[in-house]
């Protein structure tokens, strides 16, 4: 689960303004692979800026999966039925797995997972801003599945065709596994909407709180997106922010009607001329301030990840120490 508003410029590491001075023959080969719709593999030559942009995007994506375990994980202990508890654990677990596959893809570019995690915990790396909002009720779990994962799928499916092979392959595995995430969320909401008045109010309240955040997840309008054009040309990004957002809205409105909830936008209506739904203005100021660190849960999310990482240090060291001793014992026995 994650979405488009990735590849967020990192102020600590500005993207190089000039193309790197590469061997023209290598650059031509690289460009030829891209324009032929081919894939770049880990050991192939690639421009430094391509490598850097990919690394930033993939690691931000991986961080989003890991931080994204927290808002939903918040409800595992209180899931109101055993079936929902099992589904939620399996889903949060999948997100951990997706983070793992993505860190793996980033590692093929020469990064180390430990360094990427250090950057996240030090506040030097970005992740999807959506996870900086709180999950306040059980219905939030369903709404996250339906809307947040729904938005993520919109973005992730085109990424299965990403020009970088290891990333594209990770995305294929992720999309396969994610296919149940949105369905389980929507189904949980359907059951609640057929239930008591209090359950229906919980669902509507959660939709009211998450709808605009989900629209912002697709990132600022394409005109404002600094990396968009280059990433499109490189095949790292396959569709524009606005195009994906529109696709998401068009797909979601009928789903909301079937569910029986109201999407909290009075300007939301079908535009026959465009063949799409029109929507009201998104509060980009709030998006930017959340991304910059001033959302309701930014500090809590990072502090929680940092504490888990610190609490686990001795566990990781114990395994390494044992492995080394085993190796030494084997060598000792051999001589």
């Amino acid at each position: 689960m994650y979405t488009q508003a990735m590849d967020i410029p990192d102020p600590a590491q500005p993207a190089p303004a000039t193309p790197d001075l590469a061997d023209p023959a290598q650059l031509a080969r690289f460009e030829a692979v891209l324009s032929g719709g081919g894939r770049i593999e880990a050991q192939d030559w690639m421009p430094a800026a391509y490598r850097k942009t990919l690394l930033r995007q993939i690691s931000q994506h991986a961080h989003s999966e890991i931080v994204g375990m927290l808002p939903e994980g918040n409800w595992i202990s209180r899931a109101p039925s055993l079936k929902r508890k099992a589904i939620l654990i399996a889903k949060v677990q999948d997100e951990g797995g997706h983070g793992l596959y993505l860190y793996g893809a980033a590692e093929t570019l020469g990064a180390r997972r430990a360094d990427l995690i250090d950057a996240l915990l030090a506040g030097r790396a970005k992740y999807s801003s959506i996870f900086n909002y709180p999950t306040l009720g059980w219905a939030d779990v369903g709404v996250i599945g339906w809307l947040v994962d729904g938005a993520a799928i919109m973005n992730q499916i085109p990424l299965c065709r990403c020009s970088y092979g290891p990333y594209a392959r990770a995305m294929i595995r992720i999309c396969k596994e994610e296919s149940f995430h949105q369905r389980q969320g929507y189904e949980a909401l359907l059951v609640m909407m057929r239930g008591t008045g209090a359950q229906r109010r919980m669902v509507q309240d959660a939709v009211d709180r998450w709808w605009w955040k989900c629209l912002a997840m697709f990132g600022p309008p394409d005109a404002d997106s600094e990396h968009g054009a280059q990433s499109m040309r490189w095949g790292i990004k396959r569709m524009g922010n606005d195009e994906l957002r529109q696709k998401f809205i068009d797909a979601t409105v009928p789903q909301a009607q079937i569910l029986g909830v109201t999407l909290p936008d009075p300007q939301l209506k079908w535009n026959d001329e465009r063949g799409h739904y029109d929507h009201g203005p998104i509060d980009w100021e709030e998006f930017r301030s959340t991304l910059a660190g001033d959302g309701p849960c930014n500090r809590e999310r990072i502090a929680t990840r940092a504490e888990a990482h610190e609490n686990g240090r001795w566990v990781r060291e114990a395994a390494l120490a044992h492995a080394r001793k085993q190796q030494q014992r084997a060598q000792g026995a051999g001589t």
Binding site: S77, K85, L100, A308, G312, V315, R316
Partner: peptide, 13 residues
């Protein structure tokens, strides 16, 4: 399940 999202290393989570 209290460890879910808080484990010592991703694989072990």
């Amino acid at each position: 399940a209290e460890w879910c999202g808080h484990g010592p290393v991703l694989e072990e989570d």
